[in-house]
């Protein structure tokens, strides 16, 4: 008898709880996501690094749109691996739901990223995919596609007769390798184009010297493709000095104020510009999809735009070249 009595009491309580939980569910349906926390770790948090600041802005836009909490961290100096690893470990301890990281190249990095995973934190790698197994979810600029765009631009600029000298930074640079790969793909049909590769590191002067030597040798170049900013500036300087800007085409990557001026003056014929804002946005969005256990593509690539003198002041390209609205 006593048991049944409790059964009735229990039934009443259960009934109440069930009623309220259904009510509660109905009330909060659609507004269920509010606890997700994403940490974004950049290669640099320096305010003067436009690229990473744009990534930051994209991440913020995604977090706001999806209603997630966002923390952005990164070393002040680009390339400070120790600092980035320290920040990563610190963030692992804080246990966010997901970490979106643009890892610097270092032997310790795969280990740290594995640690992120084993801590039960979702991992999304942006910008440069690290060498680790199983491969993490990647949101990256499509550097191969960017290289292909550069190659195709050189074809149109030279009426399909490009003879190209390529100036890169270093053979081991991943991004440059991928750009080179894309270049070769697009130029595969043109046997004439002498695709010689020179390495100038990150030095403007070295690139200048290489270009000068090449011009003196009087080889029949009509196009320089420079894979990083310093090379672009070095070659542009020489072309302006020797007033060969009209004769020799220059195609570069990325954008800076200097490159924009070169574009305006016509020395730089085209720049292949990435979309860092999109990278930050898609990185965080992918992380949120991972948190929600939705389907996620293993790799998301972001296309680049070809910016020339003619299209550089269209509304969307303006926004790409000048991502920030501030009083400089």
């Amino acid at each position: 008898m006593r048991k049944q009595r409790w059964t009735i009491a229990l039934f009443l309580i259960l009934f109440t709880v069930a009623l309220y939980s259904s009510l509660y569910y109905k009330m909060i349906f659609g507004a269920a996501h509010h606890d997700r926390h994403v940490t974004v770790i950049l290669k640099s948090l320096n305010v003067r690094q436009d690229f990473w600041q744009a990534v930051n802005k994209g991440a913020e836009a995604a977090a706001k749109e999806m209603g997630a909490e966002l923390t952005v961290a990164g070393p002040l100096q680009e390339g400070d691996v120790n600092d980035q690893i320290r920040i990563l470990e610190q963030e692992i301890d804080r246990k966010p739901d997901a970490i979106v990281v643009a890892p610097l190249i270092d032997d310790r990095m795969p280990g740290i990223l594995a640690k992120v995973r084993s801590a039960g934190i979702r991992l999304v790698v942006i910008d440069t995919p690290p060498d680790m197994k199983p491969a993490p979810v990647v949101v990256s600029n499509d550097h191969v596609e960017a290289g292909r765009l550069a190659g195709e631009t050189s074809l149109t600029e030279t009426n399909n007769r490009p003879i190209i000298a390529i100036i890169s930074d270093a053979p081991e640079s991943q991004i440059s390798q991928q750009r080179l790969e894309g270049l070769k793909q697009s130029l595969a049909g043109n046997k004439e184009s002498a695709n010689e590769i020179y390495y100038a590191g990150n030095s403007e002067d070295k690139a200048y010297a290489i270009a000068k030597r090449l011009l003196i040798q009087d080889k029949p170049f009509n196009t320089f493709i420079t894979l990083n900013e310093s090379a672009t500036l070095g070659v542009a300087k020489l072309l302006e000095e020797q007033q060969k800007a009209d004769v020799i085409h220059l195609i570069g990557f990325d954008s800076s104020v200097d490159e924009i001026q070169l574009l305006e003056s016509g020395t730089l014929n085209a720049a292949i510009v990435q979309k860092p804002f999109n990278m930050g946005y898609l990185g965080v969005k992918t992380a949120l999809r991972l948190i929600d256990r939705k389907k996620v593509a293993p790799a998301t690539y972001i296309e680049s735009n070809v910016i020339t003198k003619l299209n550089m002041y269209t509304p969307e390209n303006q926004k790409l070249l000048f991502p920030f609205i501030n009083n400089k």
Binding site: A61, F277, N278
Partner: peptide, 10 residues
């Protein structure tokens, strides 16, 4: 606020 995303058709 998300002009870049609209430009990129995202």
């Amino acid at each position: 606020p998300q002009q870049q995303l609209i430009d990129s058709k995202l």
